[in-house]
Amino acid sequence: MRIHRVELAPPERAPAIPDETAAVAFESWVNGRLVDDSAIGSRTRIRTTTGRLVEGDLVEVSPGYRHTFGSPPASLLRAGERAREILFPGGVR
């Protein structure tokens, strides 16, 4: 389970931060096991892996990771190919 918390509203934020940062809340997310039965969007409590009890809004069930390797950019591939041509003229053996 994943909860979301607004740690500091915009007026509570640190002084001397850029305007675009000061204009938005300081937020946090943490994963753990649900303590009470709750629906997405409701205020709830989770127990984290260190045993902490944290309160926040339930935003995701079974949170996971979907970051990828992306696709190779043409400029990078071209750079690598040119280096190989310099070192191994006539093609890689």
């Binding site: 934020r13 931060i17 940062t21 943490v30």
Partner: peptide
């Protein structure tokens, strides 16, 4: 346990 935050000091 990972506490993920938005940007800021």
């Amino acid at each position: 346990e990972v506490v993920q935050c938005t940007v800021g000091p």
